[in-house]
Design a protein around this nucleic acid. Sequence first.
DNA 1: CCTGAAAAACGACACGA
DNA 2: TCGTGTCGTTTTTCAGG
Lengths: 147, 147
Amino acid sequence: MDEIDFNILSELQENARLTMIELGRKVGLTSPTVTERVRRLEEQGVIKQYTTQVSAEKLGRHVTAYILMEPKDCKQYVQFAASHPDVIECHRIAGMYSYLTKVVTETVHTLEAYIDSCLTLGKPTTLIVLSSPVANSPIQPVKSTSE
Amino acid sequence: MDEIDFNILSELQENARLTMIELGRKVGLTSPTVTERVRRLEEQGVIKQYTTQVSAEKLGRHVTAYILMEPKDCKQYVQFAASHPDVIECHRIAGMYSYLTKVVTETVHTLEAYIDSCLTLGKPTTLIVLSSPVANSPIQPVKSTSE
DNA sequence: CCTGAAAAACGACACGA
DNA sequence: TCGTGTCGTTTTTCAGG
């Protein structure tokens, strides 16, 4: 894990569909060499997945909310959240409440329906997202991650 | 926007580096056809970005937290958050507090440092992530997004 | 880590349901 | 209009050095 690897990760976070020739050009290597480095980063688990960000708006989902949840039964709530198509993330947290769940849903009415089903499982507190000044900023290495 | 497009989006959310031939095979089309569909999805803004998920752990960032923030000056706080390398997301919210900020940092000590700098800008409430039962679940279309 | 050749995939065009 | 088939070019892969 040297600086070239960091540059590779930075470029791939920006555009996962770069060809190895383009990527090599950006980091100063030839395509077979950079291909081998990418293969190792995948193998080590540094690269977890190549994914595509799609517009929730364009898919008819206009409302994003975070829901703080104090469930009666944790396992039951996780099962509910994991199987619900509107749930994008669900985090177990320390501090206030037990879970923080990110929901991307069609309208305030479908959000209401989601909250209603939550009410049978515990006590939800809803935070509706108005805008996102920072969205999915790339992760940078901390300093010497030499392994 | 028909069902084939939904399948394309689903496949690309799982693996953004699929070749057009592989993608075509998965959705039942030949490569020129699926290439044209992908081009249109990009043009329409349905596909926003091809990105790579990297392991925060492997890059030396072991602590994830959400911070609810009540800043004295909103613009000042957004500027601070946007320029801080540990901030991955920052959302303006309605409900309790004004901002919800996702921070991925090295240790509890670097988190403490982040919170300290927040304290000069307002009143933060920290929620440390213990685990994530649901992480970045793909977005599915809602029903008839015919445009 | 680079070079070079074979195999595969990409992009563009003309054609057909 | 949308999908198919083909050709020339680019990219990937794998042999070496």
